[in-house]
Amino acid sequence: MTNRILFIVMLVAGLTAPFFAYPVFVMDLLCFALFACAFNLLLGYAGLLSFGHAAFFGGAAYIAGYVTKEWGFGPLIGILTGTGFALVLGTLFGYLAIRRQGIYFAMVTLALAQIIYFLALQMPFTGGENGLQRIPRGDLFGFIDLNNDLAMYYFVFAIFLVGFGIIYRTIHSPFGEVLQAIRENESRALSLGYDIDHFKLMAFVLSATLAGMAGAAKAIIFQFASLTSAHWQTSGEVILMTLVGGLGTIFGPVLGAITVGALSHELSSFGSWVQVILGVIFVVCVMTFRRGIIGEFQHRLERRKNQRET
């Protein structure tokens, strides 16, 4: 019930947002929201902390940008290629990373992502420190001109909804139930006969793919793919967004992305203090606010319901 209300709120807000706020800014938030949702699928539901999701986000951005700019394909093909790249990369990284557990998993993903960062820095086609610039937005289906911010916005919103829908369906499927079982008690899930590594890998690949979709869309929106997207700090930011909004909740990452995104935007004139403030939020969240906004809300709601029943 609450989920349905929240979904309608999100839908209405999403459809009307470009009339209240600068569309490009909202599109940026949407990309990060999808990125955070994809990340949350892995940490919130499968209990795997990846510290390397920027590799998929940033890597897909470069590929999408290259395909549209140098090979002249349309934005849809560009985004799909970028997403496909994230899928392949996710399979590779996932296969390696699930060999270690817990804290090691986080370190392995971080180190693997650093390979992508250095490749992006050193390979000839990525433009090194300058990044890939002047990526064309192009036409969608040949007749919708995406240089129009509003058209671009609704295209991005549609991408977001598709990604969000996939994640929602995954979480509420038998597959999602098994993931949560693994998160709660890995040995028991194993003893029940589930092929744990297979499930973890599937979750990792799906999460990486959707993170890539968000990154590819971002490259088309800003017509720019940069090293920042592939940097470990971006991996940290997406963790923060998920944590602030509510780990393991459906809408938490969306709200977290909006909160953190808006905050960084508001504070952008303070230079490095933004980093300090994000760090402080990180610390405060971990110390006192581990449920996040939506998680806390749900917790209160449930407690009130329980009180009424007793």
Binding site: I103, Q233, G271, Q275, V276, I277, L278, G279, R290
Partner: peptide, 22 residues
């Protein structure tokens, strides 16, 4: 869960780095 220790120290990293970068 041990990951919270990692996340906490990550936050501290951002704070220290940001302070000196100023």
């Amino acid at each position: 869960d041990h990951i919270y220790g990692l996340l906490l120290t990550f936050g501290i990293t951002l704070i220290l780095q940001g302070l000196f970068a100023n």
